[in-house]
Write a protein that binds this DNA or RNA. Structure first.
Lengths: 209, 209
DNA sequence: AGATGAGACTTGACGTCGTCAAGATGCGAC
DNA sequence: GTCGCATCTTGACGACGTCAAGTCTCATCT
């Protein structure tokens, strides 16, 4: 077993942490490998040995982000017994991950920054997707079993990801119209509720036609 | 009136075009102000005079993107008479803009690259939002007039934006599970249909409870 | 028609960045 | 105890963004 304490203790983890912190502060545009090294207290070329190049480090951060997403949504699944409540909790968990780990989320779906097809990324992303799929499947089983699970899954996922990406834009729009923007977690629940019920459909517990 | 033909003809437009092209080729991470200048056939400092810094140029590209979005969705609105069909056409138009103008879309919601609150950006973004809002309002009027228009709007918008951001991830997932991913335009329609009907709701034309 | 001034663009420079090569250093294995 | 390898440092290179100064071109005024 490696001793895990050389000069630094666990430099790869320290670099991932510093990278996530820097990304959270300045966004992907303000990211700098040298600044990450500086924050970790090592020389500017130290990250190269562990991650190859900057894409390698960002890929590791992305994988960590998908891990957080998997763990958070898994925990949310245990929160509620009712399938619809559970899906709402999943949505809330998704945006909570985005709020609590903004640095990770800044790179998670950026194929120009992250090496697509990295095994860690793919594994954790797939696990997160499986959690969502199970949640959506349970809701589908309530009534519309003929619906495509994948389409329903991806609509929910896309709505949450879009919410994360657009929330700042929503705030701009609302500010321009003299209105305040709801909390992002509340919006996640309301989006989920709307997708479950439908714009022209009845309430969640409506018997339908 | 400025003659619009000096050394170059219309350098600002040429720079915007070269920037969008470069962004489309290499993503936001591969963007370089000097490369843009090179493609436009001017010196590396020429863009400074017109756009200040790289954020200024990217802001102009983002504004152009919102303009494209406004024009495309406006045109889509005229395609169908039925409100639900119209909303589906809006969704399809949204992803078509993303496919046809990937360079613009790479920066449109990136507040670390674009100057939020730029008047051009805000104006065109608001116009695009108004087109969407009108479309959603018409669908809401079909039955559930008590629903919050803003929430319904933003659910649709988020789902489309999420689809654009995640489509490559969907392809990865489907490839891993030996399945092929539907065309992004078709997915846009199916997402819209699902949001209109709801996961547990009835069909679009179902009378409900 | 020639001078003048403002805008458009170039040239050159500076510090920072990512990456590569070569060297130093410390830990574990034999 | 020393040998070998992984770890990290140092130094260098070209490319980048930005600023300052300079050059050029066109439009206007007399």
């Amino acid at each position: 077993m490696p001793s895990a304490t050389y000069h630094h203790g666990d430099l790869p983890a320290a670099l991932r942490g510093a990278a996530a912190e820097l990304l959270a502060e300045r966004g992907a545009a303000g990211f700098s490998l040298r600044e990450v090294a500086r924050r970790a207290g090592v020389s500017h070329a130290a990250p190269t040995h562990h991650f190859g190049d900057s894409t390698g480090l960002l890929t590791a951060v992305a994988a960590e982000g998908f891990m957080h997403l998997t763990l958070a949504t898994r925990a949310a699944t245990a929160e509620a017994a009712d399938p619809v409540d559970r899906l709402r909790a999943l949505g809330r968990a998704y945006v909570r991950v985005a709020v609590e780990h903004p640095g990770h989320c800044a790179v998670m779906f950026r194929s120009d920054l992250v090496h697509d097809g990295d095994p860690d990324v793919q594994t954790w992303a797939m696990q997160a997707y499986d959690v969502l799929r199970a949640g959506v499947r349970d809701v589908l089983a309530l009534r519309r079993t003929e619906l495509d699970v994948e389409v329903a899954c991806r609509t929910c996922w896309s709505a949450m990801q879009g919410l994360v990406a657009l929330h700042r834009t929503f705030e701009h729009i609302d500010a321009g119209e003299g209105r305040s923007t709801p909390d992002i977690g509340d919006l996640a629940e309301r989006f989920t509720t709307l997708i479950v019920d439908g714009i022209v459909g009845g309430g969640t517990d409506a018997p339908g036609r």
